[in-house]
Amino acid sequence: MMQVVSRAEWRARERRREHLFQVISACIVLLAITTLVVLLTKILLDGYARLNPQFFTSFPSRRAEQAGILPALVGSAYLLLLTAAIAIPIGVGAAIYLEEFAKRNWFTRLIEINITNLAGVPSVIYGLLGLQVFVRTLAMDRSLLAGACTMALLALPVIITAAREGLRVVPKSLRDGSLALGATQWQTVRYSVLPVAMPSILTGVILSLSRVIGETAPLLVVGAVVYIGTLPESVFSKFTVLPVQVYNWTTRPQHAFQENAAAGIIVLLLLLLTLNAVAIYLRNHFQKRLPI
């Protein structure tokens, strides 16, 4: 049933409703910010006391206050480098193929749709893939190499997308100029496109790789070990990484281990921050230096 109201009353009512919605939405947006602040504060408060030199130079231990993250830190660094060494050439190569070489036909579409869908596959499934292909079939066992291969496959869709974005920055005129001078497609890419696109490709690739640092589930499945008394010596060694160590400490019932977990998280977040800062620095640096 409609109710007759005066125009002034209607306006006032609408204004109240408008106002109420703005307040509610501002509160909700604040919720996201508050959550982030609370999360970071909680972790800092829990973990900062454990951040001493001994924590960085010790192996995991049954005694929380003697345990450290040395093998996890070294393992994370090796894993990142190895993953980058595998995933960057393949990812950038695939991006170059799709952007510069591929004809627009159904097969190219298939590859593109495929990459989009792979980006949506849960990471734990990549763990199962790695377990069956690298650990068992290729007999790499539960090694650093198996972990890196798995992570490389996981990172590929994101790297390809990032590298394609980077290649799109290069203006078409540059390619046309090179081709008009008689250069082949690959010579054009190699000498004209890549030097220009490299900084933006690199930025995107580093940002995508920073996810590798935080991934836990696929490495648990592939078999990162938790108790480890030695540092990895080769790519076939057993290994552990920072997030796996954090997971292990978090699931212990003793409170002291959870402090260790928080301290490990602080280190993990600092690592992520560093990687992102490097990416941003690279972007700004190259942007300024290159002539237009």
Binding site: P89, I90, G91, G93, A94, I96, Y97, L98, F101, A102, L110, I111, N114, I115, N117, L118, V121, I125, Y126, L128, L129, Q132, V133, L153, L156, P157, I160, T184, Q185, W186
Partner: peptide
Amino acid sequence: EAVVRLFLFVCAFIGVLTTFAIVFI
């Protein structure tokens, strides 16, 4: 030119292989 093109194609095709491998396993 042909070698490079083949290499780049293989890179792009690894994505398709990954999907097949996941489904197959």
